[in-house]
Design a protein around this nucleic acid. Structure first.
Lengths: 202, 202
DNA sequence: GTCTATATGTTGATAGAC
DNA sequence: GTCTATCAACATATAGAC
């Protein structure tokens, strides 16, 4: 079944492009079909409804940017390495797809129950298990003098904010700071090392 | 004309609540009318179209979070004060309305031409005039030893990111870190002084 | 200024031939 | 699996009475 995968893949690719930009309400099924180079009816052959197609796209986007960092935070590496790895991960991922975070956060703002429910269902993200272990590691490394005495919650928030937010602001930053795509890219690249240094060398 | 202002105000209030959450495409005029406690026809009495109503709401939101900081950056104060003022401004503004940034950034992602055009039109935001003067001030204060030698572009990006991003992540952070509204609020309050210290004491 | 009723155009979804 | 043609529902917008 090469044809089948081909068509389904083309639909998903088109749906991503349009949903990322316009969201659930702003996207039109006809538009997606045209972009995919197929017929409107085909969409409903592979995906029962617009909502289901959207959820498929959302789920992929969500899993692309959230569980990865949870798993890093849950790993056995020292904090310093975790931070470097996460900044690196976001800069790589979002350089290839800057629209991702606004898309995901907008869906969550639209319907938190629905699009954040996938959160709690996931075992490894249970807040207690997850944050508890991490807090402990922080305390220990701080006591050992490996880390400056910082509030772990702020550190995590800062890390994600410093890594992700610039991509959300990309269109505005390009205008405000008079950058083209290349100089924006260079600026983001320089943050790979800047962010960890900035967070830890106090 | 108290009645008139009342109705128009009620419409705008309702429209804000619903557009903030659902965006242009996801919102329904009927929903806004109901929320405002008036009739669907009344919406078109005060606002010619859904698009025009949305643009009104967008413009207000946009001006609430962007020009204020531009004017601070353009002022004559020392960098240190500017930074404190901007962090303070965002934490106050977004504590009252955490949905604002996702709403604005989503509209821009939806149609950059349309919703970022208001940018270039504004005189004071002309990138050259604006960033040029600011860069100069940075250089001078760094030479005078008042500031650590940082790239001004990163500093501005970091400042805004650290101030704004946590509010965009609010629903997710509350779950991940097991916070209720009150402890989230406390955490944000503590950032008023944390952010400037973090940015400047290197 | 405010309402009810209605026109007009889209849109998501399906039926059914190939 | 893929298409054309079509339906039924809905949403924006307007007409017109009060």
């Amino acid at each position: 079944m090469p044809k089948e995968l081909d068509a389904k893949e083309k639909i998903l690719e088109a749906a991503k492009g349009i949903f990322y930009k316009k969201g659930l309400g702003g996207a039109r099924m006809a538009e997606i079909a045209e972009e995919a180079g197929i017929n409107k009816a085909m969409l409903h052959y592979y995906f029962s409804s617009k909502e289901q197609l959207f959820e498929t796209v959302f789920e992929e986007a969500f899993h692309k940017i959230i569980p990865s960092i949870i798993s890093v935070l849950n790993s056995e590496k020292p904090i310093r390495e975790k931070i470097e790895e996460i900044a690196d991960f976001y800069i790589t991922t979002l350089s290839a797809n800057p629209q991702l975070p606004v898309f995901v956060l907008n869906a969550i703002q639209y319907d938190p129950e629905r699009f954040l429910g996938k959160f709690m269902k996931n075992k490894q993200m249970s807040p207690q298990a997850f944050m508890g272990k991490l807090m402990q590691q922080f305390q220990q490394e701080i006591q050992e003098g490996k880390l400056p005495p910082v509030d772990p919650r702020h550190l995590i928030i800062n890390l994600i904010g410093l890594s992700v937010f610039p991509f959300m602001m990309k269109p505005m930053l390009k205008i405000m700071m008079n950058m083209d795509d290349e100089s924006f890219h260079d600026l983001m690249e320089s943050r790979r090392e800047l962010i960890p240094r900035f967070l830890l060398d106090t």
